[in-house]
Structure formats: C-alpha cells, structure tokens
Design a protein around this nucleic acid. Structure first.
Lengths: 208, 208
DNA sequence: GTAGGATTGGATAGGCAAATCCAATATGAG
DNA sequence: CTCATATTGGATTTGCCTATCCAATCCTAC
C-alpha cells in the first residue's frame, strides 16, 4: 500500500473553483450511476477539466469519493436544517414530511437518498466510507432529534417521549421509503412509513 | 445491439448443478461486493467453473444478474413465508420482528437487504432490473399484508385498518433500518423503526 | 513586470474485466 | 455400446479505466 501525501487544498481562486466543479460533477454522476458506474473520464467531461486536474486535487478515486460523501452530507444537512430547526409543532413535522415526499415524487423516486445509495454501495467494503457515512446519518438523526426535543420543551410532546428512538425511526422511514420508491417509481411506501411514524408521534402528544 | 438467443436451460443433471452453483456463487459475491464489484473471474473461482461455463448458461453478465435477482427474491420469500403465514397475533408480529432484527444483528448489520442493495445499485440504470426488483418488493409486501389480513379476520385488528399502508410501512421500516444498520453497524434504527410501526398497529387492535 | 509556484492539456502505460472461440471431454438416449 | 449433443478448459481478443507523466500556460506576490 503506497502512501502518498494528500494534495493540499487549492491555493488560488481558480483552483478552488476547479476542485469544486470536479466534486459537484462527480457527486451528480455518482448519485445517478453509483461510484463504480462513474469513470474518471466521465467526471472529466462533465466537469470540463482534463484528466490531470482530478489527480492534481485528489490522490485517487477513493479520495474523490471521500470528497463526494462530504459534499452530499453537507448538502443534505443544509437543506434539512431550516426545516428541522423550526420543528416546533405537529404541522411543522407534517410539512417536513411533505418536503421529503415531494422531492422524491418530483423524480418518481429515482435516485433514492444520496447518502443512502452511497452507503449501500460502499459501507461493506470500505471502512473509511462507512465511518463518514455513519457520521452523516448520525448528524442527520440528531438534527431530527433536536427538532423533537424542541417539541418536548414546548409541551407538545410528553416529557417521557423517547425522542432518540423516534428520530431513528423517522430517518429509517425516509431511507426505506426512498429505497422502495426507487424500485416502485412511486412514493406510496415512503408516505405510508412517514405517516405511521408521525401518527405514532401524535400518540405521544401531551393532552391539550 | 446484437441480439442473441438466451441459452436454453441445462438439460442434464450436471448442467443444472453447474448453473445453480454459478448463480449461488454470484449471489453471494454480489451481495457482499455489489454487482459492479463482482467480476466474472471472481464468480468463476468461487463457483469452481471455467470462464466458458458462465457464458454457456448466461448470455452476459446482465443475464446472470437477472438470475441472481430471481434467486434472492426466492430466497427471501421462502424464508419469510413461514413467519408471515402464521401472522395471526401480535406475538407472531413481534417474533417476525425479532427474526429480522436477529438476522441483522448476527452480521452487525453488514450486507443490508439482498434485494435492497441490488435495487439501490441497479434500479436507476437498468429498467429490467428495476421491474424484477419492484415485483420482488411487491410480493414481499403482499406476503406481509396477507398476514395482517389474517389478523383482521381474526378480529385482532379493527376491520377498517388500512393493511396495505401498514404492510408498506413495515417493509420500509425493514429496508431503512437495514440501510442504517449497514452504516452504523448496529440495529438501533432497525429496532426503533419496527417498534414504532408495531406500536402503531397495536393502536388498531380491536378492543378486547 | 517578473519569477516561481499553481494549474492545465493531453498523450500514454499498465492492468483488469467482459466476452469469444475452439478443441477436448462427458453424458445419456436408443 | 455408440453417437449426437451437452458440457468443460483455458487461451485470447478487445476495450475501457485508473493513474502517471511532462510540457505548456496561468496566477499572484513582490
């Protein structure tokens, strides 16, 4: 196993822009065709760079994949953050559900979850990927839990509610629903799974 | 696109055994390393056959993959069938849950669901795979629904229960829970998701 | 403006995987 | 037992993908 120093971050504007373009193009391709289904020539074309740039900014394809995992994690967390930060009512929970369902609906379920797909492909064989993806899932579920915590603080949910378990259940509903949506090309299972989880949460609502 | 006739089924005992050995070896490898991560030489070695056998019994790798999808679908359905056929009580539902969780637990979540992994990798890019996988998921969810139907007939669940939605929710909980188990190497989310779904079903129990 | 490092273009080596081919051997129906 | 057919071994071709190399060009700090 030859060790090579990781390329340092680009030091110029142009360099940074190029690196970002490579990561964005790779993320898009890997989302649509998987990591193994994405060749470096394909990334090269999509990003409009030449072969050597990729290996100038990344030691190898694994290193690029690492950057894609970080990129997708950030993308999801920053998309979800505003929705989950204001999770202070049942209506807010429902509108979060609707956003997730709509996103899946718009593409007929195609694609699945960017993190889920990467995890399914990489987790078994690549420890470094699994660790990063597990951290991403943990951050996501904690963002959900923070929202539920707020609902407990608000008195909307009973104090004894196991918010950690609920946040795991919600995230699992999203992941599983998206897996099924991808195969079935509809969001029936995703909606059913989220609705069941939300209905269960309603049972933990404090009496008015 | 050159069309070639699909090889007819093997006509001798030995041929059938060889074909089965190839499918079983390919299924195992594709489960552990994905379809793209499984080379025909690897299958060749694992099955103890020579290169030409694979192309004698299958037109190409896609055709072999098709056989693997059918194999995994059959394997899952026949494993699940006995559990779901007797799904006539809450205890039976709980013991189904335990079997699923234990299976995941035994391998620390590694591997995920054989159908789910295949779907995640293939559904977007290969229509033929998506159709077969969607059919597999549908058969699975219908097996679950049949169990819930029995519980309605038994008077355990209220007649107005939406068993179709519940069966989708349960299957999504399994799929999502397994995706997370694969990354996290634990079954926390799988258990939480299944327990939430089962708790929700309990709310549909008819009054004693 | 200029020097020195950063960035870029494109050719290319090396390796592995998919698929083919044909000769050799095994099978089983009669 | 015999022969037509099924099965098997393994070399081989072809093509793509990863990764490297080096020369040319572009930045930017001074």
């Amino acid at each position: 196993m030859s060790v090579r120093a990781a390329p340092e971050a680009p030091s110029t504007h142009k360099g940074r822009a190029t690196r970002d373009r490579i990561v964005a193009a790779a993320a898009e391709l890997m989302y649509r065709h998987g990591v193994a289904g994405t060749s470096t020539p394909a990334v090269r074309n999509a990003a409009g760079v030449s072969s050597s740039q990729i290996y100038h900014y990344f030691t190898d394809k694994d290193d690029l994949t690492r950057a894609v995992i970080a990129f997708q994690t950030q993308t999801i967390l920053s998309n979800q953050a505003p929705l989950l930060a204001t999770l202070d009512s049942i209506e807010a929970l429902r509108s979060w559900r609707d956003v997730v369902v709509d996103a899946a609906h718009r593409q007929n379920g195609a694609g699945g979850c960017p993190l889920g797909s990467l995890s399914s492909e990489l987790s078994d064989d690549h420890r470094w990927a699994r660790d990063a993806l597990a951290a991403g899932f943990t951050a996501w579920s904690e963002a959900i839990r923070a929202g539920l915590d707020a609902m407990v603080d608000n008195g909307i949910l009973r104090p004894e509610t196991d918010v950690t378990a609920l946040s795991f259940a919600l995230l699992a509903a999203v992941q599983g629903g998206l897996v099924l949506a991808q195969a079935q090309h509809n969001t029936e299972a995703l909606e059913a799974a989220l609705d069941v989880a939300i209905a269960h949460i309603l049972n933990h609502a404090a009496p008015a």
